Computed example of a mutant assay.
Amino acid sequence: MSASRVVAVLLAGGTGTRVGHELPKQLLEVAGRPVIAHALEAFQRSGAVDEIVVMMTPTHLAEVQALVAEYGFGKVTRVLPGGDTRTASTRGALEVLEGDCLVLFHDAARPFVTDRIIAECVDALRGGYRAVTTAIDSADTIVTVRDGLMTGSLDRSCLARCQTPQGFARTALVEAYSLADEDPSFTATDDASVVARYLPDEPIGVVTGDARNFKITDAVDLRIAEALSDRP
């Protein structure tokens, strides 16, 4: 597996609805550059990544193709239309990739992914894991709620909040999704959970994330991102 090429797939199918814009959130500017440009720069810079594929909201492919050319992101080989859901975009990427490559899936709305996180995800895959996720410890107590009432609390020491990248041997994720296709109740919000559910004997490595590697979801996140961009 050590010779396998590494492909970073940026999932950029989200919209700007919760941020309060008609423009997709990944095209909104932070520190004078589109959010997606910050994420692309991180993978372009990383010596652990060989190729980048972007799965973009279909109505805005031209904008991404233009910024790829403007900023010289030479590792980007394809800008493709994303699906209606995250899993549909993942499936679309898997269909165009070939062989036993290693794939990192990253939310384009996480502009501050670090070189360390990217490198450690790849190292974990090259070290023997066929699936890996990025996560940080939960700083908050997590409670269970029903009908507006607290019904219990969970052990915080055993909880973590998933981020991206999530990395896989392509063949492992293809196998997991093939099994998911046979499940009429299949739903998923991330790709590692698909492996956990349908390949339960497959260990999933965990790479320590970073609080700055947050996902821009609403308007306050844009303000936080702007503030963070002014810091070293």
Results as ranks from 00 to 15, higher is better:
178 S>F: 06
150 M>A: 12
105 F>E: 01
210 D>Y: 10
164 T>E: 09
203 P>E: 07
177 Y>T: 01
106 H>T: 02
175 E>S: 15
111 P>I: 01
30 V>S: 01
148 G>H: 07
188 A>K: 00
129 Y>S: 03
117 I>L: 08
71 Y>Q: 09
12 A>K: 04
40 L>Y: 04
89 S>R: 03
172 A>D: 01
192 A>M: 07
80 L>M: 14
57 T>C: 08
219 A>G: 04
53 V>E: 04
230 D>G: 07
182 E>F: 06
222 L>F: 06
164 T>H: 01
28 L>I: 08
88 A>D: 15
232 P>A: 06
166 Q>M: 11
84 D>V: 13
160 A>Q: 13
66 A>L: 13
52 I>H: 03
134 T>R: 03
162 C>H: 15
142 I>K: 05
93 A>W: 08
16 G>T: 03
127 G>D: 09
105 F>S: 02
184 P>M: 14
178 S>E: 15
123 D>W: 08
82 G>V: 05
185 S>C: 14
219 A>D: 10
70 E>G: 08
118 I>T: 08
47 G>N: 04
181 D>E: 15
96 V>R: 05
184 P>A: 10
22 E>L: 08
122 V>S: 09
86 R>E: 13
3 A>N: 12
221 D>W: 08
9 V>N: 03
127 G>H: 10
228 L>R: 01
30 V>W: 00
96 V>W: 09
19 V>N: 06
124 A>F: 09
161 R>E: 13
122 V>D: 12
80 L>W: 01
39 A>P: 00
104 L>P: 07
209 G>H: 11
136 I>A: 05
65 Q>Y: 13
155 D>L: 12
137 D>K: 15
171 T>Y: 01
101 C>V: 11
52 I>V: 14
13 G>H: 12
69 A>R: 15
164 T>S: 07
215 K>N: 11
183 D>A: 10
149 L>Q: 13
220 V>R: 09
36 I>V: 10
76 V>Q: 04
48 A>E: 08
95 E>F: 10
33 R>D: 06
54 V>H: 03
5 R>P: 11
43 F>R: 01
44 Q>F: 09
181 D>I: 07
112 F>T: 00
